[in-house]
Design a binder for these strands. Structure first.
Lengths: 213, 213
DNA sequence: TGCGAACCGTACCGTACGGTACTGATGGGG
DNA sequence: CCCCATCAGTACCGTACGGTACGGTTCGCA
């Protein structure tokens, strides 16, 4: 809301100390959920004063926004090397992308932040929700778009609407696993199936959008 | 937790009055999110006393469980008529199923209950999450499984693992729309695209698992 | 008519949270 | 050596919630 919030949203301009505080806040959130994310708890866990929290981040919403921005700034998605692709290369890149996507979505920090944003979606006009999608999904979406476009340029993929193709890939890879994990299904048990799931999804995607047959 | 909770979970044994109270509680939840779901607020909105709430439902968790059971008991999924299927019939049933799935997932009561269960997933051992999946998703999943099995028996579909095929169908239909809506994306704007989305998804699914080509 | 159960409305209690104010300690710059 | 900014720690305030207790009312039933 205030200057402090705006500065936090920029993702930069954060003291190392402030980053450490946000790190501790994320740990609290992961361990105990939204209920554990109290200002007093953060101050206690991070050995700082509540007054400093309010000076740095404005209010609780600003602090949460800063947490999202801070976490997003740590996850940098490297663009795929834009070399020419053959069929095996595309297949491999798609597999890697699918595994990375499942890995990111099943990360406990990602799950905790998504739960937090979803819980607040009704009362804050989905400000956090938009932020999460802009900062998190947009990144991995761009990576996928670049990969799909490279596949099309190499004559390996055929689609009219890139968004539609990406939607199909995302759905085939993720299905309802994300929701199940958000609802509390043990992520540890599911991670063992990620490899098989990724291969099945990529095979299906290539059957739908691949030119080789 | 207590006898009251168990009775509520059974979905039956609810007085008409109690059903009306749960209806009002659901309305509060839809309108104002979890924060608006206070015992005092429910009592005020439903013109009942807090004491009655605690007598009927035990505690707040029991009341929420009763809300989930109550809502699930209202949504009865009619099994598909088990007549013999031709290709057009299967296609039509799949389209209907896809539209119904999108319609259910985008309903405001469904979204509100999913948000509530996700928000509590960290602190209640995912009790509500399991209940939501058992009572809600399981129903529509069974309907889909019956439809897919009928398609296979009619020689129109070919798959080894029914769960895998259902996962692909679900992913193609829903993609990331559910998450976007949970995060606060305006559901009204998206509903216009449901028809096209359903057709695309069913076409893709039939391209993957259909025997006719 | 009298009785008891169910229930509404409300007052009440303990607790915990968000946010503010104050005190004392530390440390760097003139 | 002093001054001032920063920050930790804590006490504090108002509020709101979950849960309980109690008085008053309605209604079914003998």
């Amino acid at each position: 809301m205030t200057a402090a919030t705006r500065e936090a949203n920029a993702g930069e301009g954060l003291t190392e100390r402030q980053g450490a505080v946000l790190e501790e806040a994320l740990r609290l959130l992961v361990d105990g959920g939204e209920k554990a994310l109290t200002t007093a708890g953060i101050a206690r866990a991070a050995n700082c004063s509540k007054e400093s929290l309010y000076k740095w981040f404005g209010d609780r919403d600003g602090l949460i926004s800063a947490m999202i921005g801070f976490q997003a700034s740590k996850v940098r998605t490297q663009d795929v090397a834009a070399r020419k692709l053959d069929a095996d290369g595309l297949h491999g890149h798609l597999i890697t992308f699918a595994k990375d996507l499942l890995e990111v979505l099943s990360g406990d920090v990602s799950l905790a932040l998504n739960r937090l944003a979803i819980g607040q979606a009704s009362r804050d006009g989905s400000k956090l929700g938009h932020m999460l999608q802009e900062r998190g999904r947009r990144q991995i979406g761009r990576r996928a778009a670049a990969l799909l476009e490279a596949g099309r340029k190499a004559g390996l993929l055929s689609f009219d609407d890139a968004d539609e193709a990406y939607g199909a890939l995302y759905g085939l890879v993720v299905s309802d696993w994300h929701l199940k994990m958000l609802l509390g299904e043990e992520a540890g048990e599911m991670k063992k199936g990620f490899g098989r799931k990724a291969e099945q999804a990529v095979s299906a995607f290539l059957a739908l959008y691949g030119t080789k047959r």
